[in-house]
Design a protein around this nucleic acid. Structure first.
Length: 203
DNA sequence: ATTTTCAAT
């Protein structure tokens, strides 16, 4: 009964899942989100390791007439359901960081913004691998989220490597960037900057 | 080049 120290095994993402979902070239019909929390102490951010993890969006398995399936849940809303369970001290200030494979859709962005408005003890940073442009108004959504105080950024090799080390079951192997990682990251960063500044490049 | 877009036609 001395097998493991008080260190609880945290679930880790397998390597393929990470690569398949965070590579900018692939566009899987699912979203993964890695999250972590830090507590503000003077000028420093202290990691709160117990609330570190990852999740993915939830889908209804079977849809049948007359059956009330569990509603689909985008990854961001899964996170919003999770945060209250952490019971963070409202007298202190925390920073929640998430690394997400698709940027928030307009609805999620709006809900995140509302959440930040109601939780002034929390700050939010969003690092996205890709920009989710499927739904009309995605630009406005991202701007709204930024206006609510969130920091929104495209993941660079630095964040990919951090996620690999922190959330992936990497078996001790170092992060090997995929082809064109930096190229896509720079391209998407430029796109996001334009969006957040209110420029439109597409009609 | 406009793209497998938080699926399921």
């Amino acid at each position: 009964m001395e097998a493991t120290p008080a260190l609880e095994a945290r679930p880790l993402m397998d390597e393929d899942t990470f690569r398949e979902n965070f590579s900018q070239e692939l566009k899987p019909h699912k979203t993964y989100l890695c999250y972590e929390v830090e507590l503000q102490e003077d000028d420093a951010w202290i990691p709160v390791d117990e609330f570190k993890g990852f999740l993915r969006n939830q889908v209804t398995k079977h849809r049948r007439v007359g059956t009330e399936g569990k509603p689909r849940c985008h990854a961001e809303l899964c996170l919003l359901e999770l945060i209250p369970s952490w019971e963070l001290d409202k007298e202190r200030h925390y920073r929640v960081t998430c690394f997400i494979s698709w940027s928030p859709c307009p609805d999620c962005a709006s809900q995140l913004a509302a959440f930040l408005g109601k939780n002034s003890h929390l700050s939010l940073r969003v690092f996205a691998s890709r920009i989710y442009t499927k739904f009309a108004g995605y630009e406005t959504g991202l701007r709204q989220l930024q206006a609510a105080g969130a920091q929104i950024t495209i993941m660079t090799s630095e964040e990919f490597e951090y996620c690999w080390k922190t959330f992936v079951d990497h078996q001790g192997t170092p992060f090997l960037p995929w082809d064109d990682l930096d190229k896509y990251s720079k391209m998407l960063s430029k796109d996001l900057k334009g969006i957040l500044q209110g420029n439109w490049t597409w009609s």
